[in-house]
Design a protein around this nucleic acid. Structure first.
Lengths: 285, 285
DNA sequence: GCAAAGATGTAGCATTGCTACAGGTCGGGG
DNA sequence: CCCCGACCTGTAGCAATGCTACATCTTTGC
């Protein structure tokens, strides 16, 4: 994997490194920014090892040399430093929380980007494009995503629904017809009710698309599964990145569908946006 | 600005560059990835200029040398290439939409991160920490953010509300009391109803926090304004990044507040998560 | 305790990025 | 029209960097 986050790689490979290489790994993990702007000689000196050891370390984490390693490190650092913020401390001031959560969110989005199945997405777009109506299902945080997706009906171009009441959901799923599409959103993909809804929707003749975080039981009840992987995290306080990644996937789906709807659709869309602007004050209020 | 996106910089500085330096700029903009993995000599050859010209180009865009330029380029590329995706084309296949929207989202988040006012955030956290109840207000896409924030009440640790009906909103705003907090979410900050709600909430004695995209009329009705700037964009089909940035800010607020609530709160939170797991199937279903 | 395998450091080399300087180009004034 | 100065641009050379072959030291298994 060429695009793998090299900082994560260093962390995971650390145990299987040789002793002196581990010194380099520790230095990198402790202060990646310093390593980034240092030369090979400086890194070797700081880690109290020889230069070739540093080079070997680079090779051990899948880089072709020190230069390559530095480039990848710059890449990873730009996306944030997941290694350092995975643990949010009670003593962290709000400023630290800002950095850590932004870092974490951006890194996770990059992670999801790399793992998103393009073929599945292409299929999902085709199904949505042919849909006569779309219903979004989700509970908890995923309900928010479903609501957001429903609000994008101007882009999808067909009636969209997102019931939040579980009885209404059951009714909607049961009444779906061939030609209509159910989009089932669940990060875990193991919530009982959501599995039921997917099965019912499918039995009703609708196509079913899943947006989920893992290759879970849910995918078995679906025509297409969009697996949106995010960074594993055990820290209870770390916000659920999954919903943000799911929102981005919804953005992608709606935009891709809209792009294929052509000029007439685009014209109406523009008119809608203009009317929406009428709800706003021009200057002060 | 040391952390400014160097690709954007190259694009904006291009006109004031000398002729041969412009050749380098064009090469960088045309294929940044290639430049990233090339040596100084290769870049010079590809751009049909001499090596010192490339070095001078690097200086002209604010880098201390070729090495530094390459590192910054890696940084920018990691965040995506905003220059190329700003225009989504009707002919784009879904794969291209994926890349462009991920790029755009990540770049925008980085943008927001750099501009977020840490002092204001610190103030907002202090206000929320002292709150006896929190009500979130928002319309349209911001309503989704409000709903999401409300769902984070276990983190905030006090009763949270997010009415979606505008009459109910008006009632809630009117009935707020000193000690309670209203969080008003509006990307434009110009929606009439939201301005009214902010004014009413304040008149009722509540503290008012705004989450908005620009320094707008809304900030005048608030105690603290969290301005979450995102990349300007005129393309009607480009998804509204603002709500994602707002969600991240909500994550930050809720996490920062939760971190200050201490062990007892943390224990109850954990118990809640465990019960939630009971709603899930263990293996297949 | 010895030998083999492995890990780490030393020394030297090719390449890289950088800079002082020279040649060339363009524009304005005599 | 020609000359002079300012300003680009390229050539040549240098210091330093990253890399590799080899030697030394450490560890491990018998």
């Amino acid at each position: 994997m060429a695009r793998e986050n090299v900082l994560e790689l260093v962390r995971s490979r650390r145990p299987e490194l040789r002793r002196s290489e581990r010194k380099v790994a520790d230095l990198v993990l402790a202060d990646p920014g310093r390593v980034l702007h240092a030369t090979l000689a400086e890194v070797a000196r700081s880690a109290r090892v020889s230069q070739p050891t540093v080079v070997r370390f680079c090779g051990a984490v899948g880089c072709s040399g020190f230069q390559d390693f530095r480039l990848r490190l710059a890449h990873s650092l730009a996306l944030g430093t997941p290694a350092t913020h995975s643990v949010l401390l009670g003593t962290d001031p709000p400023e630290a929380v800002v950095e850590k959560i932004f870092d974490y969110t951006i890194t996770s989005l990059d992670w999801a980007r790399q793992r998103l199945d393009r073929a599945a997405l292409r299929e999902a777009v085709a199904i949505l494009e042919a849909a006569t109506a779309i219903e979004f299902f989700g509970f908890g945080a995923s309900a928010v995503v479903a609501r957001d997706a429903q609000q994008k009906f101007p882009l999808f171009g067909v009636p969209c629904g997102a019931e939040s009441d579980s009885h209404q959901q059951l009714m909607r799923a049961s009444m779906l017809q061939p030609g209509e599409v159910a989009v089932v959103i669940s990060n875990t993909g193991r919530t009982r009710s959501i599995l039921d809804l997917a099965a019912i929707a499918r039995a009703s003749g609708a196509r079913v698309i899943a947006i989920t975080g893992t290759r879970s039981p849910l995918v078995r009840h679906c025509d297409v599964a969009l697996v949106v992987e995010t960074l594993d995290n055990t820290d209870i306080y770390t916000p659920t990145i999954s919903r943000i990644a799911a929102l981005v996937v919804v953005d992608i789906l709606s935009t891709a569908v809209a792009l294929r709807r052509g000029d007439e659709h685009s014209r109406r869309f523009r008119a809608m946006k203009d009317r929406l602007n009428g709800l706003r004050v021009s200057d002060d209020g």
